[in-house]
Design a protein around this nucleic acid. Structure first.
Length: 1079
RNA sequence: GCCCGGGUGGUGGAAUUGGUAGACACGCAGGACUUAAAAUCCUGUGGUCAGUAAUGGCUGUGCGGGUUCAAGUCCCGCCCCGGGUACCA
């Protein structure tokens, strides 16, 4: 009676989804008696558009694997959740005032309803939402862990910052090998102890894995926030396509660069698609080379040594502070100058304006300290011991030691001395000054010691080509540009720097590569051959990579070549060989032997590099250096809808909210916009503070919550830990992860980073989070187009459009049947279409088609719900798998969905007689029937293991076709078959399983065992090919000796016909495969 | 430009270590059932030539070469499409 009709399908599927839910058949618990399997999908961001047919593609695949592994005896973890923080909900909030939480909750409800119709075996009790305070409590906690960690290069892992502080107290930072900012100053234990809290924290920020720093960020004014590098594509924001500019801001960052090497190496240990690994490798961008100094030629040094504003390096000029501290010290010294003590004022009046014949500066930063008075020319510091100094002997000693190190001598006077006897004080100062040598006279460049101070450092991976260097190029932003530019070139250089600065990133990228640059007038000396080479600036050299300076070798670098050609600079060949000529299209920069290269002549590139490196060492002008393209990840966003930081500011210093007081929940605010004063939206929150201290006002970026969520699924309701030790020990890592490749350099990189950091800190055991990863392809939408004749309200049918100037309009695909437009629906769609005139062909309006991203704005979204209501969930599941290989992108079309729908009906019919009554026979099946069954079991198993779901669906179809023609309805065949099909089409399988008399869910059945004995054949139909072309078939026993076969074949009519009686040259017999007769 | 993928019938796509190219499905054509349609079932279906037909020949996996008894699969040289990335020294 029960036909597998549309209504019946609906009844069956709804019945089972309800039963599964009621019985909680997907509930997963730790079971140490079974091996675990963790099948994970990339959790979705719940957008307002709901699910389209592209979303379930990966979910279906992972669900098949999850169900398959379960019936194979694994304890399967297969969860789902939502990446619920994000920009769209917030943009919507800005426009409408609706709280992003409400938008998000609504969207999640839609997603869950849609997902619930497809029969996924998700354990919804483990659902996570990143915007849930119970979840982001732990995101904040992880942030705190990273804030409290640094990267120890010796142990090659992250460690607690406390151990670093202990080391500072013991030995300063001299012996420490830790990842830190390049500009971190060195200090001794004594100095460390002398630092005030602020200075200490400033140092620690240079080591922390989560840290605050002044950095160049991608600022998107339209979105009112900064974006990470992976969120910027082609100079515009990935979301929305708004312009992005570079801007210096105080920002939270994550020191992912500390993990660059491990992130790179780890790729070799995981089973991911090669293109994706390649993307990560490129993103990390490791290049091995060396840094070396090119000294400025003598005439270029003059301005450098004149002192004053033209000083070339911090140590040689008036800017004697540590660069990293300059911004802080500057403020202090300014303040000090305004609040001078009486004694200081007194002395200053006598020292200023060269009164003693020497230029004296007051409150001047040297290194990390501020000296009261200093004469830079004579390297003398004059200190007054005020109240502060008097009470801190240790501090004074540390200062003196430090200043001596910097080459300064220090004389001290007490306040008393200055007040009571200042003539004597002045006389003493003058005599010391007069006695000290002027540094102008002892040029730092003539002694080996100071030489490095007047050099430009370059990074190169091709030190072997150093004899081909004919000029140097530095970035327009390079710090030495002002210092080395000669007076004659000053105007030109300044102009170029201005132009380069004002060209936005977008312009730089979209522009056709235009060669531009300017000569600075300065020269440097090639340390290998003492050649004098000019220094240019050009924007093809990036300030942010390497040292911001390159040694240009136009004969082996195409950019240098183009530059040299454009500005008519010399070119020296250093490579010889057929592919070593840069002007030829087959140029290969690493081919050929060195020429014109002195002691490197005749060597190949890699040998030459080693020799040249040895020379660099010998000269002491540089060292081997590994550079990474990857930058630290910006971690703050000026947005509302994200995780608040567990950070508050106490006297300007960032402090963590104690773990026990987490989460810091997102406050309610009146509008989701920046404040009038330009603070992030959180600045609007009323009475939102930590014990009176202001909280950090930015929120975490979208990737924060997704960088660890797979751990939370292991133990989602734990209130004491992000996941229990037991759960982490059991579930470990993800065995199969399915999702899109668009997350290659975002989510997938950050997740690996956090996983490694959590491992270093002892919280998890896996170095890599996702052992096996598959990128499902994108299902594209097929848009339908109508053609409006320009300047009219007429539309012309597809094939007639060529005769007019037309503009295509995306038409809602629900108005189109095949290619034919439903004119009525079209006209009623929008007001502006009410009165349009349609030019028809054959009385029809034919639409054009185009493959686009499936998106609301193209009106081409196909909803899985519609497919489910028309065909059922099982058909949707099978069809999406049958579409083609999982990894492949393809446009959606429902052509062929009838095929899988028909297959299910035929499968159903195997269990039913022509009246629709359930009827299976208990007779013993024939060998042939067994063969069909076992062939299917085997092939399907193999296909699932290879994630080749389309071919496994084919195999099921073949199986059903064969069983149908055998009219087989044997229980011994059908029962195992239902189990094998159940991962693909769980509803129909469960229904038939019940009809077969089982009361427990099919999920608890055991996968049928493949028995190869049914595959064993005694004979084989050999294709007989003559000269490689198959002409006939002959049946032979598989164990027949080749010689016997050859005799029969040679004697056969067929062969006789082709050989015309002559003996064949050769007969090749591949047992069980093919026979080839060669004439 | 560079780095990955990939090019197979009208369409989506199959093809272990080289071993019967086009599985499976859609579409199309013909037939059965039906008053009719839908549904279902059966048959055929790469192209081409010969033949009433059974059948047989030639040709065929982007293009041009090569290796091999045998090439969609391996090698060399090109063309085209998709994705990623971009002055990274």
């Amino acid at each position: 009676m029960a036909d597998y009709s549309k209504d019946e399908i609906k009844r069956i599927e709804e019945k089972w989804r309800k039963t599964w839910e009621d019985k909680k058949v997907y509930k997963t618990t730790i079971d140490t008696t079974k091996p675990k399997f963790y099948a994970l999908d990339m959790f979705p961001y719940p957008s307002g558009a709901g699910l389209h047919v592209g979303h379930p593609l990966g979910y279906i695949a992972s669900d098949i694997v999850a169900r398959y592994k379960r019936i194979k005896g694994f304890n399967v973890l297969h969860p789902m959740g939502f990446d619920a923080f994000g920009l769209p909900a917030e943009q919507y909030a800005i426009q409408t005032g609706q709280h992003p939480r409400i938008t998000t909750e609504k969207n999640i409800a839609t997603y869950k309803k849609q997902l619930g119709q497809i029969g996924f075996s998700f354990d919804w009790d483990r659902e996570v939402q990143t915007s849930d305070p119970n979840y982001y409590k732990w995101t904040q906690w992880i942030f705190s862990q990273l804030f409290n960690s640094f990267y120890n290069k010796k142990t090659d892992k992250a460690e607690k910052i406390d151990t670093l502080i202990a080391e500072f107290e013991k030995n300063g930072n001299a012996n420490i090998s830790a990842v830190c900012d390049e500009e971190t100053p060195s200090f001794t234990a004594v100095e460390w102890k002398a630092f005030n809290e602020e200075a200490k924290e400033n140092i620690l920020q240079k080591y922390r894995i989560a840290y605050l720093s002044e950095t160049m960020v991608n600022w998107c004014a339209a979105l009112g926030t900064v974006l990470s590098n992976d969120e910027v594509k082609d100079g515009v924001s990935e979301r929305g396509g708004y312009p992005v500019e570079r801007k210096n801001m105080l920002q939270w960052s994550m020191r992912i660069t500390a993990y660059a090497e491990r992130l790179l190496k780890g790729l070799d240990t995981i089973d991911w698609p090669e293109p994706l690994k390649e993307m990560q490798r490129n993103w990390i961008g490791k290049s091995v080379g060396c840094e070396l100094d090119f000294y400025l030629a003598d005439e270029s040094l003059t301005p450098a040594l004149s002192g004053g504003e033209g000083a070339i390096t911090p140590k040689g000029g008036y800017q004697t502070s540590e660069k990293a501290y300059w911004s802080i010290l500057k403020e202090f010294s300014k303040e000090n100058r305004q609040n001078q003590t009486e004694t200081e004022s007194l002395l200053w009046e006598e020292l200023r304006n060269n009164k003693l014949g020497h230029k004296i500066r007051r409150q001047h930063a040297i290194g990390i300290f501020i000296a009261d008075f200093v004469c830079l020319d004579r390297r003398l510091v004059i200190e007054l011991d005020g109240e502060y100094h008097l009470n801190n002997k240790e501090y004074d000693e540390a200062r003196t030691a430090f200043l001596k190190d910097e080459g300064f001598s220090v004389i001290r006077f007490t306040n008393e001395e200055v007040k009571t006897n200042h003539t004597k004080v002045l006389a003493e100062i003058k005599s010391v000054l007069d006695k000290s040598p002027s540094i102008k006279e002892s040029s730092p460049l003539s002694s080996g010691e100071g030489r490095g101070e007047a050099a430009i450092r370059v990074f190169t991976t091709r030190i072997d080509t150093i004899y081909g260097v004919t000029f140097m190029v530095i970035a327009p932003e390079h710090e030495l540009v002002d210092k080395i530019t000669t007076a004659e070139q000053h105007a030109e250089v300044t102009k170029y720097v201005e132009v380069a600065k004002n060209r936005s990133e977008r312009e730089r990228m979209s522009e056709v590569k235009r060669i531009s640059g300017a000569f600075t007038g300065a020269y440097v000396i090639n340390p290998f051959n003492n050649e004098k080479i000019p220094v240019w600036i050009a924007d093809y050299v990036l300030a942010g990579y390497g040292t911001g300076a390159v040694m240009a070798v136009p004969s082996s670098d195409t950019r240098d070549y183009a530059f040299a050609k454009h500005f008519n600079l010399p070119i020296i060949d250093v490579l010889e060989g057929p592919t070593s000529d840069i002007t030829k299209p087959n140029f290969e920069p690493k081919s050929g032997k060195m020429i014109n290269s002195d002691f490197l002549n005749g060597l190949v590139w890699n040998v030459a590099i080693e020799k040249a490196l040895a020379k660099v060492d010998e000269l002491g002008i540089g060292e081997r250096k590994v550079n990474y393209r990857m930058r630290d990840a910006i971690f703050g966003r000026q947005r509302y809808w994200g995780e608040p930081f567990p950070v508050y500011f106490d006297k300007g210093l960032p402090k963590l909210v104690p773990d026990g007081e987490l989460p810091v929940t997102l406050p309610e605010i009146d509008a989701y916009k920046p404040t009038e004063s330009g603070e992030p939206p959180l600045g609007r929150a009323k009475n939102w503070n930590y014990k009176g201290n202001t909280y950090e006002l930015t929120t975490m970026p979208g990737w924060a919550g997704s960088s660890w969520y797979w751990f939370r699924y292991m133990d989602p309701n734990n209130t004491g830990e992000f996941a229990s030790k037991e759960a982490i020990a059991y579930w470990k890592d993800v065995d199969l992860y399915i999702g899109g490749s668009e997350h290659a350099t975002g989510h997938l990189l950050y997740s690996r980073f956090w996983c490694k950091a959590l491992k270093d800190l002892g919280y998890v055991s896996s170095e890599e989070p996702f052992k096996k990863l598959i990128n499902q392809g994108h299902i594209q939408g097929v848009s339908k187009l109508a053609y409006r004749i320009n300047g009219t309200n007429k539309f012309v049918s597809y094939n007639l459009r060529k005769e007019y100037e037309v503009t295509p309009l995306h038409v809602d695909i629900t108005f189109v049947d095949g290619d034919v437009l439903d004119i009525e629906k079209f006209k009623n769609w929008r007001d502006d279409l009410k009165d349009v005139e349609l030019i028809l062909e054959d009385n029809k309006y034919i639409c054009g088609s185009e493959v686009d991203k499936m998106s609301k704005r193209y009106y081409n979204v196909v909803n899985p719900d519609d497919i489910v209501s028309n065909y059922g969930a099982d058909t949707l599941r099978l069809y999406e798998m049958f579409l083609g290989p999982l990894e492949q992108s393809k446009p959606w079309s429902t052509h062929g969905i009838d095929g899988v729908s028909k297959f299910l009906r035929r499968f159903w019919n195997l269990f039913h007689d022509s009246n629709g009554n359930f009827k299976v026979s208990t007779d013993e099946p024939s060998r042939e029937e067994y063969k069909v069954l076992h062939k299917t079991i085997h092939k399907v198993e193999e296909d699932i293991d290879n994630f080749s779901f389309n071919t496994s669906v084919s195999e099921f179809m073949i199986c059903v076709n064969e069983l149908s023609s055998l009219k087989s309805n044997k229980r011994a065949i059908l029962e195992p078959l239902v189990i094998a099909l159940s991962p693909f089409a769980p509803h129909i399988a469960e229904e038939l399983w019940e009809k077969l008399g089982y009361t427990d869910t099919i999920l608890n059945a055991a996968y049928p065992k493949y028995d190869p004995q049914y595959m064993v054949e005694s004979s084989f139909d050999y294709p007989i090919s003559i000269n490689g072309k198959v002409r006939a078939k002959m049946n032979f026993a598989l164990d027949m000796p080749k010689e016997d076969m050859e005799k029969i074949i040679t004697a056969s009519d067929l062969v006789q016909k082709w050989t015309e009686g002559k003996a064949p040259k050769k007969v090749i017999i591949v047992q069980g495969k093919i026979v080839n007769v060669v004439l």
